[in-house]
């Protein structure tokens, strides 16, 4: 089976003056359709770098990144933007919503540059917002929403282009534990019921219980990958 995203022996080296830092030292990872990958590691372990490379925002120093079996090294900025627009969704720790736009407009922002094919998008955005329980907050602006609500807006934004894979960088990092749990349960539900593929990067070990694939990262290397059958996950009968 071909993975949605596959890393083959990827390294990333940052050069600052005379010192070189190896953020990633030979990482191989396969993300398959329907996966709920949780990558954990202490700060400085290279997990953000790993996510940026998985999400095509950054290029590796060596090794291959395959998306749908195709090496992305040959793609230019424009191709990569198109790839992200069509196949990838992002959820950020600090939400990164546009403060001047309301909830509905924020969800639709990835589709804003489209010249055509916008029919039905607003309806789709409204449905997504209903799904994340914000159907009654369509015209609120980000500063009128709580942290948990803002993160749910960004989840809806990540889903607007019906992506194959969604990357989340510390999605619970700016939220209290109860709100964070609600947010992660929401993503979990989308994975379980709709088969959406998630890759979550976090230092919060408690998210591991939702994972189909637990990836442990330390000093730029994967120390362990644990697989769990979907059926064995939290809340599901064995």
């Amino acid at each position: 089976m071909v993975g949605i995203v596959e890393l083959q022996n990827v390294t990333k080296r940052y050069v600052m003056g005379s010192t070189a830092v190896d953020a990633l030292g030979g990482v191989s990872l396969l993300v398959e359709k329907g996966d709920f990958v949780v990558i954990v590691g202490p700060s400085g372990s290279g997990k953000s770098t790993l996510m940026h490379i998985l999400g095509t925002l950054d290029h590796p120093s060596s090794g291959n990144v395959l998306v749908d079996g195709k090496n992305i090294a040959s793609l230019d900025d424009w191709d990569l933007a198109m790839l992200r627009r069509k196949k990838i969704g992002f959820i950020f720790q600090s939400f990164n919503l546009i403060p001047t736009l309301n909830t509905l407009e924020n969800v639709m922002i990835p589709t804003e540059p489209l010249a055509f094919g916008k029919e039905g998008l607003e309806e789709r955005a409204i449905n997504l917002l209903k799904k994340v329980d914000l159907g009654n907050r369509l015209l609120h602006r980000p500063d009128e929403l709580s942290g948990g609500q803002r993160q749910r807006v960004s989840i809806a934004r990540a889903l607007i282009n019906d992506p194959e894979i969604i990357f989340a960088d510390e999605p619970t990092g700016n939220l209290d534990s109860v709100t964070g749990k609600n947010v992660i349960e929401l993503m979990y539900g989308l994975n379980k019921k709709e088969g959406k593929t998630f890759v979550i990067v976090t230092h919060d070990q408690s998210l591991l219980e939702y994972a189909t694939k637990k990836v442990f990262l330390l000093d730029g290397k994967i120390t362990k990958i644990e697989y769990k059958k979907a059926a064995a996950r939290k809340g599901e009968k064995k």
């Binding site: 999400g55 900025d77 933007a81 992200r84 922002i109």
Partner: peptide, 12 residues
């Protein structure tokens, strides 16, 4: 940066 991440091109 977030706009670029969600698929806006440099031209956009």
């Amino acid at each position: 940066g977030a706009l670029k991440a969600v698929g806006w091109t440099r031209g956009n």
